[in-house]
Design a protein around this nucleic acid. Structure first.
Lengths: 250, 250
DNA sequence: CGACCTTTTGAACGTATTCAACCGATGTGG
DNA sequence: CCACATCGGTTGAATACGTTCAAAAGGTCG
């Protein structure tokens, strides 16, 4: 709910340097991918502000005026949509290097809520600035299009999950997806903390929280994972993968 | 199961004029939206070819090299994704004015199949040409971003549908969505032909074809619609809408 | 006209949900 | 520091919903 920042060039130069894209650990997963040093610096210049959020805070809300997209620097977010009749549905979990807010472009207002599930920090990228810069740096334009396209492909995957998988398979797909994304960030692919509650996971997977809980217990009983509250350890990743390749019919 | 059609681009130049965006009935829903006459013409120039497809033919397949997006001029398409283990899932139904192929941008290959459900015609838009032109025409760039964003928002809506609605509610949402899109194209919002089979609708909605059939019969018995095979008449659109607003819990 | 595909409908079944009780972890204030 | 309240998670039993299996009717297209 802050007012749009006035256009002072940032005053604290030291922070800018240390926060710059070039120094960011998420660089290889984020917008700067593939840019030259020179181009990177020009992108840096339009990332006017960074914003910190405490656990539970909204980055933006459904209906807020759209003016920026956000790159997650550190932290973990969920996005959810709400229907007229009050039902809500988690549309995604998002970690560092990923871009939030692209849903807002089409109607000049965000169409979902983005909520930090742990203390987080994002880079605020003015969308009009980004579009302008994209006309000057083809690599940036192309990469931004890839990022949007990747979001579409991701959504198709979730639709498939929701449309064709059974409860336990959905959980497995969810865990493997997290595992892979943690791996891509240099974290352990077999050991991590869920930041989301069973209820949030259930909403994301189209299941009730009890079903999520039962599913996790069952995977543990099968010796594939170890669960302790939000702590997850994958003890047989191949076993999990096999559960998804397993053709049910015939 | 037909072999892919051989790649003759249509040779006939005279058609180009008559097929131009300015004359297209889908113009107001398509990429040209908001362009000046001059800009429109420049867009027209990069739409090198139009392509006709018979019912059942693939516009592109999963894995095909990506180089173009497609604007549907006339016709009706479905897109579906296929998993390693053979399950497939319909991710969308698409009508004139809508853009296909944006899933291919991120990985330089299409990630789903696009199949004509009736005889159709599309405009082939070279993506590199489009990106180039977008750097020159900010309105076009902005609008293309809106189109991609709209696709993301649409997908979120489907995820919500698949994650939270019951079988009959999914059907109602599906019918209302079609109704609204037909209305936007100047067709009757209360009377139309389904181009998809019960099986395809079921795949899209995460239901079995029998459930789709039963659901439609039930809506008919409730006096909300009339069904005759693929012909649908909505006799009480407010009644349908009420079914979605109805808060189930408390 | 006949073969095939799509759709409808019924009955039995299975999976996820609902309702409910309980447990454990976390956090707050006296 | 402990008692207590709260929130999140687990587990069981009954229920409901959609699926599966099956048969038959209705369309469509060669």
């Amino acid at each position: 709910m802050k007012a749009a920042p006035v256009q002072h060039p940032p005053v604290i130069k030291l922070h800018v340097l240390k926060d710059a894209c070039a120094q960011c650990s998420a660089r290889e997963l984020c917008l700067p991918l593939g840019l030259s040093d020179d181009e990177l610096q020009r992108l840096d210049e339009i990332v006017a502000t960074r914003q910190k959020l405490k656990r539970g805070e909204h980055l933006y809300r459904y209906g807020d005026a759209f003016s920026a997209i956000y790159a997650i620097k550190v932290g973990f977010f969920k996005t959810d949509v709400i229907t007229e009749d009050g039902r809500d549905h988690v549309t995604g979990f998002h970690m560092n290097g990923e871009i939030l807010g692209m849903d807002g472009i089409s109607g000049d207002a965000y169409t979902c809520n983005a909520i930090a599930l742990e203390d987080s920090e994002v880079c605020v990228i003015s969308f009009s600035d980004l579009e302008h810069l994209a006309t000057l740096i083809p690599t940036l334009q192309r990469h931004f299009h890839r990022v949007m396209s990747r979001e579409i492909v991701r959504d198709h995957g979730i639709m498939m999950l929701l449309g064709t998988l059974r409860a336990e398979e959905r959980l497995v797909a969810f865990l493997l997806n997290l595992s892979q994304r943690y791996a891509a960030r240099g974290y352990s692919p077999t050991e991590f903390h869920l930041r989301a509650t069973r209820d949030e996971i259930g909403s994301y997977l189209g299941l009730k929280l009890e079903t999520v809980s039962r599913g996790l217990s069952q995977l543990q009983d099968s010796g594939l994972i170890v669960v302790q509250q939000k702590y997850i350890q994958i003890t047989a990743i191949d076993g999990l993968k096999k559960m998804l390749q397993h053709t049910q019919t015939c």
